[in-house]
Design a protein around this nucleic acid. Sequence first.
DNA 1: ACGTTATGCAAGCGGATTCTTGCGTGTCAA
DNA 2: TTGACACGCAAGAATCCGCTTGCATAACGT
Lengths: 90, 90
Amino acid sequence: MSDVFKALADPTRRTILDELAERDSQTLFEICSRLAMRHGLTSSRQAISQHLDVLEVAGLVRTERRGRNKFHVLDTTPLRAIVERWPIHD
Amino acid sequence: MSDVFKALADPTRRTILDELAERDSQTLFEICSRLAMRHGLTSSRQAISQHLDVLEVAGLVRTERRGRNKFHVLDTTPLRAIVERWPIHD
DNA sequence: ACGTTATGCAAGCGGATTCTTGCGTGTCAA
DNA sequence: TTGACACGCAAGAATCCGCTTGCATAACGT
């Protein structure tokens, strides 16, 4: 549970989630280039790879290997616990 | 926006939000003693005071001074943006 | 088989965070 | 007015995070 909040605490990781929300099932290289093109991020491949590890441990990203590629898919179910923990009033 | 996630990244701060969700409008001393009694936390008064500052900057806690007391109330409206940013499927 | 491509692993550096420590300020009660 | 109480401020130490750097591994094309 703590992993989810720590994962969301970094702006680069939140942008990665945005990118995966737009286009699901991307490889690391796709994510790197699209982050640079569309979101103006200049992070290196290794940095983004480490961010994806954090997101995967938090359960916000699931992965699937095919050959030498690793595809990443968004999983927002851990976010449900946030809303259930502290009810939102109007 | 980033302040909200950073505030939620710390387990002590999340416990403070839990405590304020149970019993709203508490002073710093009330929060300190109830965190120790009911949640088993051993943080000092200054540490909790700094945590409350972080939560207030994030907009998750609002405060009101009366005399020498400062009352803290929970505000969950910043959490709405989280759910709206990445839609939750079933 | 060989080079290229996509990714993994791990040590180290710099900056941010958390907590402590000590003192300062304003408020209340007697 | 005096002392006790609730809280604020700020500097230092220890720890944590994100990033870089360099090398390693495995799959694909030719």
